[in-house]
Every structure is written in structure tokens, then in C-alpha cells.
Amino acid sequence: MVLLGASPAVAAGSGEALKIAVTIDGQNIGDNTVAVEPGEPVELAVTAINNGSSSIRVRSVRLSGVALALTFFSYDIMVPFDVPAGGRATRTLELDLAALNGQAIGLLPASVELLDSQRETLGSASTVTDVRGSIWSVYGVFGLAMLVLTVLAWAGALLALARHRLSPNRWRRALRFLPAGVGTGLVAVVTLSVLRLVPPEPVVEIPVVLGAAAIALLLGYLTPHPAPESVVDAPDDDFTMGLTTRQFDATTEGYSR
């Protein structure tokens, strides 16, 4: 389950047939962050405004939350109704948010959509939710998994650097550090969200991830050249002494003849 809201008469996106307004417990949401307490029922009222010349049939209402281009919670409610031409229609829904505790935590962008019988969007509104869920929710575990993978990526790259196992080519060394940089950016985005500082919206997450990736590439590019292979592959003294002795014996035998 999910909770979200938008100010009245929020304009629908390009190509959408309806404008919609959303209220929670009788209060307009506007641009404010919506606090969500899983387990507490909430009254969600959706008003659809039809400025067209023909009636529009709404089949269902979809509530969803998306971060990093991934949907972490989504719920469809079947509430068929018609919105008359030049008129409006309002439907009030009672939501049980208990399941949200295991789905998300922190600040997450969310949206409410009105769908037709083909599941095409007729109108939508968006907001940011402050979900008071568990760190062991789907979103929380996703962040922890990204943290572990990022630490492993940095450890692998730095260990290869310490052992002089990186490629002599600068760009290949840079690419070796790239996954660690991308992971660092993703972890930063999720952490800011879980700590309720910044929601993971595209205007935030894209610059953060790209910036971290660029820094990692630069670090990899500037790493020192690994030790020359000739030093590692140089023959040992016993082999050299054996080879010299054989050459000496062959030369002596030649003089004897």
C-alpha cells in the first residue's frame, strides 16, 4: 500500500485527458512532503476534472512509489466511474498501509494515476512521501546490498592497485574503478533518502551518480603505472648460472677440439 498526494487541480502530463486533485484526510497536499505511518488507515480522496467534450471512463486508481527508475511499491484499486464532459467526479478510498512497512523507508517520490480499461494513464499527480517503514524493507535491503557491492568493488580495485595488477593502459585502469564509482553514487542517493534529507528524484540522483562515476574514472586514470613485467619475469640466479656454465663448457670443448 502507498500514500501520496498532490495539490488540487494539478495539471496532468502531456497527452493526459484528465486533471486530478488529491487530498489526504481532507487536507490538500500541495508541494509538502507526505508523512506515512504504516498500519494507520488513511482516507484518500481523488477528484478527476474533465475539460474535454466527451465523457471519460476511469477503471482504476494506481498508487506507486519509484526511486532510481525502480518501482518499490505499487497498488491498483478497482473503482470504475465516469467523468462527464466539462465536469468532475470524486472518489474517496480508505487505505490500509500495513504492508508498506516492508516495502519502503525514507523519502520516496510517489504518484497517483487514473487508468482506463487498457491500463493507459488518463491523469496523474505526484508528490514525495516520507515512509516510516523498516530498514529491512525492500528499499532498505536494496540500499544495504548496494553498499556491500560497492565496498567489494572498491576493495577489488584498490587491492589490484596495491599488487600492481592493474592494466598498463590508463583508460583500462580508469574503467576498473568505474563500477565502484557508480555504486558509490547509488549508495549516496539511497542514504540521503533513508536519512530523510533528499528524495531520490531524477534531478538529484542522476548528477550524484554521474559525478561519483566521473571521480572514480579520474582516480583510476591517475593511478601509477604498474611495475614492469620484465622485473617480475626476470630469470633467477640459478638459471643464469646454469646457462653460463653450459656456455663455458661448450666453449672449452670447442677449444679442446
Rank of each mutant, 00 (worst) to 15 (best):
A6M: 06
V10H: 12
K19F: 09
T23F: 03
I24T: 13
G26F: 00
Q27T: 11
N28C: 00
I29C: 07
D31V: 01
V36F: 00
E37S: 09
P38C: 00
P41N: 02
V42K: 08
L44G: 08
A45N: 13
A45H: 11
T47A: 10
N50E: 05
N51M: 03
G52N: 14
S55W: 03
R57S: 15
V58T: 01
S60T: 13
S60K: 14
V61L: 12
L63M: 14
S64A: 13
S64D: 11
G65C: 06
V66N: 15
L70Q: 15
T71K: 08
Y75P: 01
I77R: 11
I77P: 01
M78S: 14
V79L: 07
P80T: 05
P84F: 10
G87A: 02
G87W: 00
T90C: 08
T90Y: 08
R91M: 11
R91F: 09
T92R: 12
E94H: 05
D96P: 06
Q103A: 15
A104T: 03
S111R: 13
S111C: 04
L114H: 11
S117D: 15
Q118F: 09
Q118E: 14
G123M: 06
G123N: 04
A125C: 03
S126I: 10
S126K: 13
T129R: 05
T129V: 11
T129N: 02
V131W: 04
G133N: 06
S134N: 12
S134L: 02
S134Y: 01
I135F: 09
G140Y: 11
G140Q: 10
V141F: 05
F142G: 11
L144K: 02
L144R: 01
L144C: 06
A145I: 13
L147V: 05
V148Y: 11
L152C: 04
L152H: 02
L152F: 06
G156M: 05
L158M: 12
A160N: 12
L161R: 07
L161T: 04
H164N: 14
R165T: 04
L166A: 01
S167E: 05
R170H: 12
W171L: 15
R173P: 03
L175V: 11
R176L: 07
G181V: 00
V182H: 01
G183M: 08
L186W: 09
A188T: 09
A188E: 02
L192H: 10
S193Y: 11
V198D: 01
V198C: 00
P199S: 10
P199W: 10
V204D: 07
V204H: 14
V208G: 01
A214Y: 06
I215Q: 02
I215E: 00
L217G: 03
L218A: 14
L219F: 11
L222M: 08
P224R: 04
P224K: 03
H225G: 08
P226N: 04
E229S: 14
V231F: 10
P235E: 04
T245A: 15
T252M: 13
G254P: 04
